[in-house]
Structure formats: C-alpha cells, structure tokens
Amino acid sequence: MSLLITGLSVQKSGRPILTDVSMAAPSGRITGLLGPNGAGKSTLLAAMLGLLPAEGRITFDGHDLPNMSRRARARMLAYVEQSASTEERLTVQDVVALGRIPFEAAWQAAPSPEDADIIARAMQEAGVASFARRRFATLSGGEQQRVQLARALAQQPRLLLLDEPTSHLDIQAQLQLLTLLRRKADAGVTVLIALHDLNLAARFCDHLVVLSQGRLAASGTPPDILNPTLLRDVYGVAARLLSDETGGPPTIVYDSAIPGSAT
C-alpha cells in the first residue's frame, strides 16, 4: 500500500531531466521531496500525473499510474500546484467543487447531494467553509492555497501530490497547511510534497527523498539524511545542525554558499 517508483527516467528535448530514480512513499506518511531548483522535483510529479513521457515504473497500490485512465487516476490522486490563479469569477465553493469533476457525468447539471456533502466536508477540513461564498481571486495567498487543498480533498484522494505549496505562504499559513496534511496522512492518505524549506521538511515529514541533478541523492528519515555533508553536496551550502532542547528535530543553520559548487 504505497507509492513505488522504479528506474524512472525522463528526457526533455534530448536532455536528461531525471535519470534512473527509484523511491518509495509509504502510505499514511508524509514524504518530502527535496532538492535545489532544477533537481527534477516538478518533473517527477508531472510524470506521476502522466503529463510527460517517462521510462520506468510508477505504481500506487499496484496501479500503473502513468498508464491508467485519466479519470480513474484523478479519482485516486490529487495534485496541488505551487500557486494557481484564475481570472474566472469563481467563488471558493466553485473552486472546491472542481474536485468532483472526475466523478461527474458529462451532462450532469449540478453536483449531486452526495457530491455537495463531500464538497462541504472538504471545505470544513481545510478551514475555508467560513468564506465559501467569497471570490477566489480576492483571497490571500495562504487562503487560496487552502482552497486548492480543499479542492484536492474533494477528490477524496488516496495519494496527494503537492508541488512546493508553501513557497508563497507566510509562516502561519505554512504551518496550518502542513498540520492539515499531517491529519490526512494520519487518516491513511499517502502524501508526497516537494519542499524548499528544509526545517519545515525536518519537522513535518516522516520520510525524505532528495534529488540532485535528476538523480536520487539520498532517502530516509530526516535525522538519518539531513546532515552537513548532504547539504554541501546537494545544495552547495555550508550548514550546521543545532539541536532543539525541547526534543524536536535539530534546526539547520546555513552559514554560507560554497563558491564554485555546482547545484
């Protein structure tokens, strides 16, 4: 019961973006996908959505993700982008209701009562029900991202992919989002989240996968793999780990960029 990737390679116009990546994301856990810009995090997520041709295998609970029907995949897997904007005059509720599209018939005029229920519950869970009637475009970045998460939850996914969802959020909104993901993981959802903030990753992720230049650089629990050597090799920074007296994960302190190190 988990996400398994074996020997994944992706090329874009002849250039390798991902090379022979193998990894797993256990179910009911939050797996953090780390690596500097250009390491291939977004490409890996896109390959799982079947958006680009890829070699290798990606399976979830035995389903071959890139090759299953689009609708069936959308009923199992939901995706949240780094940021999403729209010029349509959509309310929060309209946006969350988009999550039911994979379950609707083409000629269905409006959400069924069951769908309406699922939409309402998703809004409750993501804490956006109180402004369900507001226009999406008028919300703050953090609120918009929670609405997108509510939309993803309305898909009732067993696998949730998120591509740097916290990049544009303030600290409170980041913590709210990850707390919510923790709750979903505890309920059995497999969460794979691309993150830039290593301290956030260390605090919230159960499992980490680190990519560097399209290859797997490390994988394991945060204390196992987050160390100065990895930070130097993958991110090109000199860093220290300061232990937390309250028993939490150590805090990473970045001292300097290492000159000439390629990332």
Binding site: L51, R71, V95, I101, A106, Q155
Partner: peptide, 21 residues
C-alpha cells in the same frame, strides 16, 4: 457536453489534466 470540462481549465492545463481531462 464539455461545459464541465471547460470549468476545469480555470486554473490552467496542468490543473485540468490532474482532474482527469
């Protein structure tokens, strides 16, 4: 018949694709 599918384009191609379009 594709009205609902057009709604899925509100947030762009990738979002539409992730909704099964």
């Amino acid at each position: 018949a594709n009205g609902r599918a057009l709604d899925a384009f509100a947030f762009g191609d990738t979002a539409a694709a992730s909704l099964g379009i």
